[in-house]
Amino acid sequence: MLPVISLPDLDTAAGRSRLARVSSEVGFFHLVDHGVPDSAIDRIRDAARAFFALPDADKQAIAMVNSPHFRGYNQLGGELTNGSVDRREQIDIGPERQPLPDARGPMRLQGPNQWPAALPELREAVAAYDTELARVSRDLLSRWAVALGASADTFTESFALPATLIKLIRYPARTDDRAVDDQGVGAHKDSGVLTILLLENDSRGLQVERADGTWIDAPAVEGAFIVNIGEMLEVATDGYLKATRHRVLTAPHAPERLSIPYFFAPSLDAVIPTIGAPDGAQAPGITADPANPLFATYGENTWKSRTRAHPDVYRRWYPDEAFAAH
């Protein structure tokens, strides 16, 4: 069972101290009393279900491979983690902005979304949800900063133009008995600062890696979001807070599941500020993994992640750039 943290409790010194401890030891927790209205949650869930119920032709009309900004729909098996196929379908949605002229590398991620013509209400549902989750994310970041001995506005400048990513994900049901091919999404760390995950109340399959390399189940809790640290918060704290690897398994006979992760991230060109560890604690440095280098600039970090996950998009739109992410 993951720790449970109440957002209002983080207004107290004891609550912030617990946040720092939980974040450094586990990196995942259930967030309750977050203030997001049920209406906003119901609306985004309903819109997600309506999207996945669309005819395949409507979804394929906004296939991600048509977007140089890595936005749009991926059919079942359309995304990779660690080179292996994830068993899910999804739509990726980012901030609605104009492309930057003459952009190179990570700055090419800025641009418009692809929206399904058959479901105009999706855009409004996403916008309303983004407003609520951005508020919660900023509240969490300010309290994390204070818990680590920095000022509450430490991260404000970095988030002047957030490069947030929202995914609507459907894990299809399994009817087979095979104990193989159960990768819903492979083991990975998130490339942003923090992730706020909305699951259905009976959802299972998410697992979190312990420090000893074993895995624990992280089922949904009614009324709670699941929050985890991304790689940029590990960079910001010089490794005091570690981005935790996690995965999703789709076991034999698992029911269909809906998942909506909200990846709160700074501006693409923002260099995340370093605030270190709280007084008396040791910051061990960021994870040294040649296969997954961590970058202080968010755009570089997410460019690594996006190009690895969607090589078809990369090959189509960026033949002029060396695939340095590999």
Rank of each mutant, 00 (worst) to 15 (best):
V193L: 10
L241N: 01
P219V: 10
L119N: 07
D11E: 15
P106K: 02
A218E: 05
T81L: 00
D289V: 08
A145P: 02
S67H: 09
A325H: 05
H30S: 12
R108Q: 12
E89F: 09
W115R: 09
A224D: 09
G111N: 10
G83D: 07
L119P: 06
R21H: 13
P68H: 06
A57K: 13
R18L: 13
T274W: 00
P99I: 04
T274Q: 08
G72E: 03
S137A: 15
D279M: 03
P162D: 02
M64V: 01
G94L: 04
P106V: 04
G105P: 00
R138K: 13
P116A: 11
H253I: 04
L2M: 06
P55K: 01
G15L: 06
Q75E: 15
G276H: 10
R43T: 14
A150K: 04
V22W: 06
R45E: 15
R315T: 12
D238S: 14
F159V: 05
N66C: 00
V185C: 04
L233T: 13
P278Q: 08
S151F: 01
F29V: 01
D56W: 02
A187D: 09
A147Q: 10
T287E: 14
I169T: 12
A211N: 11
V235C: 04
I41G: 05
A61P: 02
F264D: 04
V185W: 00
P172E: 11
R71E: 09
W115L: 06
L198F: 08
L165I: 15
N201Q: 15
T237H: 09
G299N: 07
G205H: 05
D58V: 05
P95A: 14
Y314N: 05
H69V: 00
G83C: 05
A14K: 11
S203F: 13
R170S: 08
D130T: 15
D38T: 11
I44G: 01
L140S: 03
G186P: 01
